[in-house]
């Protein structure tokens, strides 16, 4: 009897450990993602070890508290510059860059519907967060996803599933480096090649890399590939 009890305890502990490891990896990927987009995060926050992670987020009952993993980050000066609208002959006083503080929330709920999404949107607007990333363990209902365009004028909501964040796709050797062009760089590129933006090859908004970088419709990314014959070469894609 005692041995089966011990057995069960050991199995439970192992399952708990696996769950913690999954959350640690998702947490790490989302920190890398937020930093890669240009928000300010320290190395310590991004490259936290598993032990440090467990120490920081484990609650009294031994499980990881997702609520404690939530965080916010502000854009770096470089990011603000990349999103700024250049002064042109037509536009002497361009609007300020459409970028701001980002809020990342891990939702523990086993069902995510309209109520949870509405609460998330309200949290973002109440605290003046420009962008929010909602990370869930389950699929969000289709009706709840319709809230995102409905509140788009107030705040920008993106959703990821924990399972999608277990590995950082941009670290895969077959995924080339994607770099977002600033508006000035974009204009210069189109002028240099005498192109309209619609003549560029495209990248979909729903493309995993586009989602990782939080690309918006109309933005242009530079894609840098390594080639054995040509060294490094760049191509450009318009986000549609």
């Amino acid at each position: 009897m005692a041995s089966t009890d011990e057995d069960r305890m050991r199995k439970q502990r192992e399952a708990g450990e696996r769950e913690s490891a999954k959350l640690w990896r998702a947490c790490r990927t989302v920190h890398e993602m937020v930093r890669d987009r240009g928000y300010q995060l320290s190395d310590a926050e991004v490259t936290m070890s598993f032990d440090a992670f467990k120490q920081k987020y484990t609650t009294d009952d031994g499980s990881i508290s997702r609520k404690m993993m939530n965080f916010s980050a502000s854009p770096t000066l470089e990011m603000i510059k990349r999103y700024s609208n250049p002064v042109t002959a037509h536009d002497l006083h361009p609007s300020s860059p459409d970028i701001g503080t980002i809020w990342v929330e891990f939702l523990p709920d086993s069902n995510v519907g309209i109520k949870q999404m509405r609460a998330f949107a309200q949290h973002l607007t109440a605290n003046n967060f420009h962008t929010g990333i909602l990370i869930t363990g389950v699929n969000i209902t289709p009706a709840a996803l319709k809230i995102i365009p409905a509140v788009a004028s107030e705040t920008r909501i993106e959703c990821f599933m924990e399972a999608d964040l277990l590995v950082n796709i941009t670290h895969h050797e077959l995924v080339p480096q994607h770099v977002l062009l600033s508006k000035e760089e974009r204009t210069a590129l189109l002028q240099r090649y005498r192109l309209k933006d619609t003549q560029l090859p495209r990248i979909q908004l729903g493309d995993p890399v586009a989602r990782y970088l939080g690309l918006r419709r109309g933005q242009v990314v530079k894609i840098i590939r390594k080639s054995e014959t040509a060294g490094r070469y760049a191509s450009y894609r318009l986000c549609v």
């Binding site: 069902n111 995510v112 519907g113 309209i114 109520k115 209902t141 289709p142 009706a143 709840a144």
Partner: peptide, 13 residues
Amino acid sequence: SDYDALIVERNIN
């Protein structure tokens, strides 16, 4: 289909 979505949302709550 919208009605089914309503049922799902009520069940979540």
